[in-house]
């Protein structure tokens, strides 16, 4: 068995809203191994976002254990959590969250600015490398307003790769994109995954799940389905099958 990247055991998360206690996650256990491409699905209110926040070390579980790359996250303080996010996790958001009026390369460099171990030259080199990986080697100095939605998301993906994370965490990463572009992005994810990068993809679109090799479905704070996908579709293939655009 390959290395466990994420290990969750009996994880609970409760929020207190006034006098009421909301049980967002009610004792979840699962493990993500190195090299997996997992989609986490669920409708709104299923605990999906809470799950994502905890996986991303933005939030702490109320009880249970969460280990990422062998580090127990519970009991870490804010600064230690920031370090984990900086070194082990790559975030991708639905709305890209790029810095406006800032070039692609500078956007990609951002996580490394908060890592004092990386020198200026190293930072630049790794950013260029990451942008080449997502196919934007020619657009290093374009600002977000000069890039299409798909390209912006590629910059965001490059940003998530630049710190060589153990896990890429994507939150509805194709939610703002049309079908064609989202297939392009999914094919990029598949390509990255084939290079051994572990991906957790949170979405509510079932047709995205077919590109991953495992699907976890949440409902009302519990896992109702966790199955290996035996019939993985190739996003590149699907893209080729799309009707040709007129222009």
């Amino acid at each position: 068995m390959s290395k466990e990247i994420i290990k969750i055991e009996n994880l609970k998360r409760e929020f207190t809203m006034g006098s009421e206690t909301v049980h967002a996650l009610k004792g979840i256990s699962f493990t993500i191994h190195e090299g997996e491409f997992v989609t986490i699905m669920g409708s709104s209110g299923s605990g999906k976002s809470t799950m994502l926040n905890i996986l991303g070390c933005l939030d702490q579980p109320s009880s249970g254990t969460y280990e990422i790359d062998g580090v127990r996250v519970k009991d870490l303080n804010r600064n230690q959590l920031a370090n984990i996010r900086n070194e082990k996790i790559g975030f991708i958001f639905q709305s890209y969250n790029l810095l406006a009026r800032t070039s692609a390369i500078e956007n990609v460099e951002l996580p490394l600015l908060y890592n004092s171990k990386v020198s200026t030259e190293e930072r630049r080199r790794r950013a260029i490398e990451a942008l080449k990986m997502v196919g934007l080697g020619e657009r290093l100095h374009h600002t977000p307003s000069q890039l299409s939605g798909g390209q912006q998301q590629r910059v965001a993906i490059a940003r998530s790769l630049v710190n060589k994370p153990v896990l890429i965490l994507a939150d509805e990463a194709t939610g703002n994109l049309d079908t064609r572009t989202s297939y392009e992005i999914m094919s990029l994810f598949q390509e990255l995954n084939s290079k051994g990068i572990t991906i957790a993809f949170v979405t509510h679109e079932p047709d995205i799940a077919v590109f991953s090799n495992r699907t976890v479905i949440l409902k009302d704070g519990n896992i109702i389905q966790d199955k290996i996908n035996s019939n993985i579709q190739s996003a590149a293939q699907q893209l080729a099958n799309l009707p040709k655009e007129d222009h």
């Binding site: 933005l58 600064n79 920031a82 370090n83």
Partner: peptide, 16 residues
């Protein structure tokens, strides 16, 4: 605010 959130998500500490 959103930029601050992003900076924190990619590893910026409060002190940063």
């Amino acid at each position: 605010t959103k930029e601050i959130g992003l900076r924190m998500a990619v590893g910026g500490k409060g002190s940063d």
